[in-house]
Deep mutational scan, measured.
Amino acid sequence: GLEHMADEEKLPPGWEKRMSRSSGRVYYFNHITNASQWERPSG
């Protein structure tokens, strides 16, 4: 619920959580730099 939404908002600017269609794993994508990574971004 609300706790999940608050957790999402802690991601650094530009980052969003996405799911890989090929593997079904969650990864993180930065739409500003077009960077993507499996680890949760910090800072």
Results as ranks from 00 to 15, higher is better:
1 G>H: 11
1 G>R: 12
1 G>P: 11
1 G>M: 13
1 G>E: 13
1 G>V: 11
1 G>L: 13
2 L>W: 14
2 L>A: 12
2 L>Y: 13
2 L>G: 14
2 L>E: 07
2 L>H: 13
2 L>P: 12
2 L>K: 13
3 E>Y: 04
3 E>H: 12
3 E>P: 13
3 E>N: 10
3 E>L: 11
3 E>V: 14
3 E>D: 11
3 E>M: 10
3 E>R: 03
4 H>W: 12
4 H>D: 14
4 H>E: 11
4 H>Q: 12
4 H>T: 13
4 H>N: 14
4 H>A: 13
4 H>S: 10
5 M>T: 11
5 M>Q: 13
5 M>V: 12
5 M>I: 14
5 M>H: 10
5 M>F: 11
5 M>L: 13
6 A>P: 12
6 A>W: 09
6 A>R: 12
6 A>V: 13
7 D>A: 09
7 D>N: 10
7 D>Q: 10
8 E>M: 08
8 E>L: 09
8 E>V: 09
8 E>Q: 08
8 E>Y: 07
8 E>H: 10
8 E>N: 10
8 E>P: 09
9 E>G: 08
9 E>N: 07
9 E>P: 08
9 E>F: 07
9 E>L: 07
9 E>W: 08
10 K>E: 15
10 K>F: 10
10 K>D: 13
10 K>M: 11
10 K>Y: 10
10 K>Q: 12
10 K>T: 13
10 K>S: 11
11 L>G: 00
11 L>T: 02
11 L>M: 06
11 L>C: 02
11 L>A: 01
11 L>Y: 03
11 L>W: 02
11 L>K: 06
12 P>W: 02
12 P>G: 04
12 P>L: 03
12 P>E: 02
12 P>I: 01
12 P>V: 01
12 P>S: 02
13 P>T: 07
13 P>V: 08
13 P>I: 07
13 P>C: 13
13 P>K: 07
14 G>K: 01
14 G>D: 05
14 G>E: 05
14 G>V: 01
14 G>M: 04
14 G>P: 08
15 W>K: 02
15 W>V: 01
15 W>D: 01
15 W>M: 00
16 E>A: 04
16 E>W: 03
16 E>Y: 04
17 K>V: 09
17 K>S: 05
17 K>W: 03
17 K>Q: 08
17 K>N: 02
17 K>M: 09
17 K>T: 06
17 K>I: 07
18 R>K: 08
18 R>H: 06
18 R>Q: 04
18 R>S: 03
19 M>P: 04
19 M>T: 15
19 M>W: 15
19 M>A: 09
19 M>E: 10
19 M>N: 08
19 M>S: 08
21 R>K: 15
21 R>F: 15
21 R>Y: 15
21 R>D: 15
21 R>T: 15
21 R>H: 15
21 R>P: 15
21 R>G: 15
21 R>V: 15
22 S>W: 11
22 S>F: 14
22 S>K: 15
22 S>R: 14
22 S>D: 14
22 S>M: 08
22 S>N: 12
22 S>E: 14
22 S>A: 11
22 S>Q: 11
22 S>G: 14
22 S>I: 12
23 S>Y: 07
23 S>I: 04
23 S>L: 06
24 G>E: 04
24 G>K: 08
24 G>R: 07
24 G>V: 03
24 G>I: 03
25 R>F: 05
25 R>S: 04
25 R>G: 03
25 R>T: 05
25 R>D: 03
25 R>K: 09
25 R>P: 02
26 V>I: 12
26 V>R: 03
27 Y>Q: 00
27 Y>M: 01
27 Y>W: 05
27 Y>L: 03
27 Y>D: 00
27 Y>I: 02
28 Y>P: 00
28 Y>K: 00
28 Y>S: 00
28 Y>M: 00
28 Y>E: 00
28 Y>F: 08
29 F>P: 00
29 F>N: 00
29 F>A: 02
29 F>I: 04
29 F>L: 03
29 F>K: 03
29 F>W: 10
29 F>Y: 14
30 N>K: 00
30 N>R: 01
30 N>L: 02
30 N>P: 00
30 N>W: 00
30 N>D: 02
30 N>H: 05
30 N>I: 02
31 H>E: 06
31 H>D: 03
32 I>S: 06
32 I>D: 07
32 I>R: 09
32 I>N: 08
32 I>T: 08
33 T>N: 06
33 T>D: 04
33 T>E: 04
33 T>V: 03
33 T>P: 01
33 T>G: 02
34 N>V: 03
34 N>W: 09
34 N>H: 14
34 N>E: 05
34 N>D: 03
34 N>R: 14
35 A>R: 14
35 A>E: 14
35 A>T: 13
35 A>H: 14
36 S>P: 02
36 S>R: 14
37 Q>P: 00
37 Q>E: 02
37 Q>Y: 03
37 Q>W: 02
37 Q>T: 06
37 Q>R: 04
38 W>G: 03
38 W>R: 05
38 W>M: 05
38 W>S: 05
38 W>H: 05
39 E>P: 05
39 E>S: 08
39 E>N: 10
39 E>Y: 07
39 E>A: 09
40 R>M: 07
40 R>G: 01
40 R>A: 08
40 R>T: 08
40 R>Y: 08
40 R>F: 11
40 R>D: 03
40 R>H: 10
40 R>Q: 05
40 R>W: 07
41 P>D: 00
41 P>K: 02
41 P>M: 02
41 P>H: 00
41 P>I: 02
41 P>W: 01
42 S>T: 14
42 S>H: 10
42 S>A: 09
42 S>L: 10
42 S>D: 09
42 S>M: 10
43 G>E: 10
43 G>F: 15
43 G>P: 11
43 G>A: 13
43 G>R: 09
43 G>S: 13
43 G>K: 10
43 G>Q: 10
43 G>V: 13
